[in-house]
Write a protein that binds this DNA or RNA. Sequence first.
DNA 1: CTGTTAGCGCATTCAT
DNA 2: ATGAATGCGCTAACAG
Lengths: 363, 363
Amino acid sequence: MRIDDDRTAETTDRGAGPVGGAPSVRRGRPAPTSKDVARVAGVSQSTVSYVMSGKRPISEKTRRIVLEAIDQLTYEPHAGARALAGHRTNVVGLVVPFHNPEAASGLMAFAEEIAVNARDHDYDVLMLTAAEGPAGLARVQRRAMCDAVIVMEVATDDPRAAMARELEMPVIFIGVPDDHDGLHCIDFDFETGALLLVDALADAGCREIAALGWSEERVGLGMNYVPRFRASAEARAAERGVRLRWISAPHTRAGVEGFLDSVLAPAGRSHPGLLTVHSPHDLGAALQQRGLVPGRDLDVVSLCTDVEAEAQPVAPTAVSPQPRDVSRLAMGWLFDLLDNEIPAELRLVEAHLTTRGSVRPLG
Amino acid sequence: MRIDDDRTAETTDRGAGPVGGAPSVRRGRPAPTSKDVARVAGVSQSTVSYVMSGKRPISEKTRRIVLEAIDQLTYEPHAGARALAGHRTNVVGLVVPFHNPEAASGLMAFAEEIAVNARDHDYDVLMLTAAEGPAGLARVQRRAMCDAVIVMEVATDDPRAAMARELEMPVIFIGVPDDHDGLHCIDFDFETGALLLVDALADAGCREIAALGWSEERVGLGMNYVPRFRASAEARAAERGVRLRWISAPHTRAGVEGFLDSVLAPAGRSHPGLLTVHSPHDLGAALQQRGLVPGRDLDVVSLCTDVEAEAQPVAPTAVSPQPRDVSRLAMGWLFDLLDNEIPAELRLVEAHLTTRGSVRPLG
DNA sequence: CTGTTAGCGCATTCAT
DNA sequence: ATGAATGCGCTAACAG
């Protein structure tokens, strides 16, 4: 049986470090535990726990004393112990996609937003890679490494969808798999975004639209937003009696040039319209080289973030997929999901058109 | 006192799921524990533990039986429990920098390489943000959330350096703070890289070099590699009797154009040399627009990855900072550090010049 | 309102 | 070569 504490009841020697800029970590000393806090505060260990969790009423007086002791010892709870006893890790898993230079910037924005939101709720982020596939999700659940997972860059036919249905823990997909029944999915409303962009060109009088879509690689990986956007754009173009053409290899210099050759060469063609996705860097230069100015010689609209738009020589009228909004909402949903039972659902972030003068007003 | 097990000694009902594609996670059932494995295998719990850790000799026979039970139950150890009892989390922290579109691609490559290496050692990656500053390092240590941390995008005068010295846990800096005494730092050898690039131009007969460096933002943040590279390049240029000029705002279109105007306008100037860092996308287009071809009308060398180099209209002779090599080596060092006491040290990854024909052979 | 107690699932020290 | 017993630091149920 235990003979009680090995540590004596001194309340002073574990106090603050050297005067003036005491380091918040002291070498050699083991990290203080809630028992240490309890001793310093002169209360029981469970009281310390309850002060931290707020799961039962505590008198204002003891509350203050305990918080003071916590502060004095710079105590922080042992994550593993807490997870073991409390069945909660305070960690969310984030499955990041395979490296993709084209989309890297957007992905980092996503990830950062998620990490910051997590910290706001005293959560941390475990970085999982797409390389682990569905098995990765099962692994982190069985090891109890996180309370929920966010999956980015979902494919139309994504094997992680089936796995997510088997898991106990909440999984939020950023993107919409074909069969998203029973899944919690959130994404930008690419369908409406496509409508807005096609309409912007059609309203300006364009009879013909050339679209520079996602890279071949993205398409090949079956990214869910590609068909969502394309199908919607095509449907609307048909409705408006506009011809819509998709360009292959849109993100190579040759692709851009070839496109310009074929579409714009017959000078005087009526109202050529350009719809770009994440405007390829070369496009601005290519147009410029041909003396073509968006909003004067042709109409250009784009699906891209505001930052990307403003970076163009001529900022295009655009619809932003709002990566930060999407991840912020995803996190809000996730935290809701952790405490409450919420039925599976598909949530879409509203699309808006930002007019920027790359489209000629119909005159 | 404990009345022993609540679970009966059946060894069959927790077996594999439905025949043919049994899901590896079964809803409703609690995750199996090492005790479950022990019961199924007919051994003690500690034996299961020792089979997994290999920390004491186990007969081949029981070893096999235990592994079989583990497999059958798809058992995985509870991360929190393991961390609590074993004082090891099997997690490495990774501090990712503030969002920076310019460098996002490289950072994702870093992160992916680190994550993959971690998984190879049965480690996971906790994503920390630079926003937490030095306090973030202290926090994850006190909470026992990881066994070591890797810090990316280190500043010349980085507050995390001081914190790292206080910590018990290993911290590896990717980058070299000014005062790196007592720190474990690893990075690409930017100094030698600069020498190689300046030499390449000087050897080709350039008397004048214009350098397009990092963005103002990077410089403003005090990124350690900026002065390391610049100082070394300047020193070598002086040695070689070459004039070296740094261009401000190198990553704006105006910056690039302004630079070309001032340096190249006086046609026939002797051997203009260009040294670029992460070639701005616009540079290729800008040169092309002026009818200038690297390797014919001027000499261009670059500090950029092979991928970035090959993406240019004319692939430049270049030195690659080898992000993947650096992170792989960092992880190797880290795992070494976890088991062995290794003195602090600065490790540099060797620089190599890859000749690609953007420099005219001296004739 | 607060203290006492029993595990959470594992690693590890004793025993054999 | 194996088993039994202990405790890591915490949460939550139980007892006042």
